[in-house]
Computed example of a mutant assay.
Amino acid sequence: MNRLAEKIAIVTGAGSGQGKAAALGMAAEGARVVAADVNEAGLAELSSAAEKIVTKRCDVSRAEEMEALVAFTEERFGALHVMLNCAGYLRAAPLLETTDDMFDGMINVNLKGVFYGCKFGVPALQRSGGGSIVNWGSVNSMVAEPDISAYTATKGAVLMLTKSVAVEFAKDNIRANCICPGAVRTPMVESFFDEGFFADMAEQRKYQPLGMGTPEQIADVAIFLASDESRLMTGSAVVVDGGYTAL
C-alpha cells in the first residue's frame, strides 16, 4: 500500500476495463488520479468508488482535449507525476474489408491518443522534475494475428513511440514504458469470443497458457511501472500475456 503516495496521475480510458482497474489500483496505492474517458457513465461509477479519483470527460483523439486534461490536472493538484495512456479502440476485420472509418478510428484513439498523452504530458512531467509514462501496447505490438491488421499496426507504432520518448526525455528523469497485455477479459475483448470460450478454461489455455487475464492483473503491472520500484526501467516492452507469445 501507498507505493504511489503523493503521486498525481492521469489515466485515460478509465471508464471501463483495464483503464478502470488501473485508476482504482493507483488510487488504492495512494495516488491522486484524474480518470479520463468519453464514457461518462463509467466515469460516474469511478468517482463514487474512490475518494482519490477525480473524473474528466476527454476524447483522447482530440489534441485540444488532451492538452486541457493535463492543464486541468496541474490546476487541480499542482503537478503531474504519472501519465497512463490506456484508452484503446478495436474493430476486427480482414485487411480487404477494413474501411477508412475503422482504420481512422484505431489510428485516432490507439496512436494519436498516446502521442497526445506524451506530447502534453511530458512538459508537465518536466515541471515536476520527472515521472513515468505508461503506454498501452499489446502482444500485437510484437506479433501479428489475422483479421486485425489495422489494430496491430497501431499497437506496433505505440511501442516504437514509447521507445523514442524514453530515449528523448531520459535526461529529464522521465521514463516511458509500454505495457503489452495478452487476452484480458474486457468489453473490447469480449467482442472476439462467445460466452462458451470464457467458461472453458481448457480452451482458453490453448490460446494463452495461463488462461484469460483480468484487468486487475494488468493494473498491478501498470502500478509497478508507475512507481519508483521500476526506476531503472525505460523504453521497455513489458509483456503480460499469460504465455501467449511463448507458444
Results as ranks from 00 to 15, higher is better:
residue 149 S to I: 06
residue 82 V to P: 15
residue 188 M to K: 11
residue 30 G to L: 02
residue 180 C to D: 04
residue 164 S to T: 06
residue 129 G to L: 02
residue 68 A to G: 13
residue 237 A to N: 07
residue 231 R to W: 00
residue 152 T to L: 02
residue 247 L to Q: 15
residue 181 P to H: 02
residue 246 A to W: 06
residue 125 L to N: 05
residue 51 E to D: 15
residue 154 T to D: 01
residue 51 E to A: 15
residue 33 V to A: 13
residue 240 V to M: 09
residue 155 K to D: 03
residue 126 Q to L: 03
residue 210 L to E: 07
residue 211 G to A: 09
residue 6 E to A: 05
residue 89 Y to R: 08
residue 26 M to N: 03
residue 104 D to T: 10
residue 143 V to H: 02
residue 68 A to V: 12
residue 157 A to L: 02
residue 76 R to Y: 02
residue 18 Q to N: 07
residue 68 A to D: 15
residue 232 L to P: 04
residue 243 G to V: 03
residue 82 V to A: 09
residue 202 A to C: 12
residue 139 V to S: 00
residue 131 G to K: 04
residue 231 R to T: 05
residue 234 T to F: 08
residue 127 R to F: 00
residue 219 A to K: 06
residue 162 T to Q: 03
residue 159 L to P: 10
residue 154 T to F: 07
residue 155 K to W: 02
residue 195 E to H: 09
residue 101 D to K: 15
residue 116 Y to L: 07
residue 1 M to Y: 00
residue 16 S to F: 05
residue 90 L to S: 06
residue 209 P to T: 08
residue 244 Y to E: 01
residue 178 C to P: 05
residue 206 K to G: 11
residue 107 I to P: 00
residue 180 C to P: 13
residue 73 T to V: 13
residue 227 S to K: 02
residue 51 E to S: 15
residue 190 E to M: 05
residue 192 F to C: 10
residue 238 V to H: 08
residue 35 A to M: 13
residue 8 I to V: 13
residue 85 N to L: 09
residue 172 D to I: 00
residue 164 S to E: 04
residue 176 A to L: 09
residue 58 C to E: 07
residue 105 G to F: 04
residue 13 G to S: 12
residue 85 N to D: 15
residue 230 S to K: 09
residue 13 G to M: 10
residue 236 S to K: 05
residue 13 G to A: 11
residue 11 V to C: 14
residue 98 T to V: 08
residue 103 F to R: 04
residue 239 V to Q: 11
residue 199 A to R: 14
residue 206 K to A: 15
residue 93 A to G: 00
residue 143 V to T: 05
residue 127 R to A: 07
residue 188 M to V: 15
residue 119 K to Q: 14
residue 71 A to L: 15
residue 191 S to K: 12
residue 44 A to L: 11
residue 125 L to W: 04
residue 190 E to W: 03
residue 117 G to C: 11
residue 93 A to R: 07
residue 36 A to Y: 10
residue 70 V to H: 07
residue 210 L to A: 10
residue 9 A to E: 07
residue 101 D to C: 14
residue 188 M to R: 00
residue 170 A to L: 05
residue 129 G to W: 08
residue 58 C to D: 11
residue 150 A to T: 08
residue 219 A to F: 14
residue 123 P to W: 02
residue 102 M to A: 14
residue 153 A to V: 01
residue 82 V to T: 07
residue 117 G to P: 12
residue 82 V to N: 11
residue 242 G to F: 04
residue 147 D to E: 03
residue 125 L to S: 10
residue 154 T to E: 01
residue 34 V to L: 14
residue 124 A to Y: 11
residue 169 F to I: 04
residue 200 D to P: 14
residue 92 A to M: 14
residue 218 I to Q: 13
residue 222 A to N: 08
residue 245 T to G: 07
residue 197 F to H: 10
residue 9 A to C: 08
residue 193 F to K: 12
residue 186 T to W: 14
residue 12 T to V: 11
residue 113 G to M: 10
residue 115 F to N: 09
residue 139 V to K: 03
residue 185 R to Q: 15
residue 232 L to H: 06
residue 50 A to M: 15
residue 231 R to N: 05
residue 11 V to A: 15
